[in-house]
Design a protein around this nucleic acid. Structure first.
Length: 288
RNA sequence: GCUGGAAUCGUGUAGUGGCAAUCACAUCAGACUGUAAAUCUGACGCCUUUCGGCUUCGCAGGUUCGAGUCCUGCUUCCAGCA
């Protein structure tokens, strides 16, 4: 019997990829690796629309709750983690599903990114204390190529840390993987985002966010996700509840668009509607 | 009914009589390999690929070389007084 394929399902937030993956994994004996840069954090469950406990009981999920907000976990860490899990899942003779909206996480795995130039925290702290202009100056003095977007402080810092060493990636996906992207009509996606927002608020998203903010503080990367920065403003009375709700939908919508902008660059994604994707993957998996 | 204030891009705003006119939000497009739900860039009255052209600041007039800005009338809204 040949090795089980890696099934990759990507798409913007609220496109329905998670529930599709659930159905398929349940039917064909799979385990799901979440490729979501926010769901990796503990205690951010509702706000990141994590799979429910019931779903997690039915199908084994990975990539959830691996670190606490405030801890550092990068795309490079994810690649290593996911590859390890894929190997383990296959060794159990089950089908690995890589599912999520963090395009860079998915590409890191499927295009086998070679990350270059790590960082040390002391150096990072020093660079972060510099202004954008100082960083640009540092680059030109040290023959470091300034990123196309020279106003982006994070990219300037990374350019300095990488010292002109550019990471590699494969020019085609890794072997034995099926990559499907979920397309959704613009209007429909917008509606889905609105409907899901209503559900998340009902489930107590605000209360969860407040609790997380109190426990971990608001000033860490995990808390820059859509709902958290809004709840922070809400708790300090800068915005009303109504503004909170509508801004959340706006941020989610923009997130979806940015996700698609990234994913569009990957030429190896088989873009299908939710229904088509389900048919297609059912055929593929049934023939295994 | 009287008095005062207001009317500028989808929204909220800036605008000493002198360049389509500030800023924010929203919108749209884009970049992005170790924070990626992050971070950052561009467009945003209309036409034009560019140069450039055209029409604009409630409506109608007026003053002026020149009006979003000053004057008159009107309309609508807000506040105070009746």
């Amino acid at each position: 019997m040949s090795e089980r394929p890696l099934v990759v399902i990507i798409g913007p937030t609220a496109s329905g990829k998670s529930s599709l993956a659930m159905r398929l994994a349940e039917q064909y004996g799979g385990e799901i690796i979440s490729a979501d840069s926010r769901a990796i954090y503990k205690d951010l469950d509702i706000g990141t629309a994590k799979p429910s406990q019931a779903d997690q009981a039915l199908v084994k999920h990975w990539g959830l709750d691996i670190v606490e907000p405030g801890d550092r976990f990068t795309a490079a860490d994810f690649k290593q983690y996911a590859n390890q899990k894929i190997k383990e899942i296959r060794s159990r003779n089950k089908t690995p599903f890589l599912v999520g909206g963090s395009g860079m996480y998915v590409d890191a795995v499927t295009l086998d990114y070679t990350f270059s130039g790590g960082y040390d925290q002391a150096g990072r702290d020093r660079l972060e204390s510099m202004t954008t202009e100082q960083l640009q100056l540092y680059c030109s003095k040290n023959n470091i190529t300034i990123p196309e977007n020279d106003q982006n402080k994070r990219y300037l810092i990374r350019a300095i840390e990488r010292k002109n060493v550019v990471g590699n990636k494969r020019n085609k996906p890794i072997e034995n993987c099926i990559i499907v992207g979920i397309t959704t009509d613009r209007q429909v996606l917008r509606q889905r985002i609105e409907q899901r927002a209503a559900q998340l608020f009902d489930q107590g998203m605000i209360e969860e966010a407040i609790a997380a903010g109190q426990k971990y503080g608001w000033d860490n990367e995990a808390m820059t996700g859509n709902i958290y920065k809004l709840v922070r403003q809400y708790t300090s009375d800068d915005i009303t509840h109504q503004q909170l709700v509508s801004s959340f939908i706006t941020l989610d919508w923009r997130l979806a668009k940015r996700q698609l902008t990234w994913m569009k660059r990957n030429k190896f994604i088989n873009w299908l509607s939710l229904a088509e994707a389900e048919l297609y993957l059912n055929r593929e998996l049934a023939s295994e």
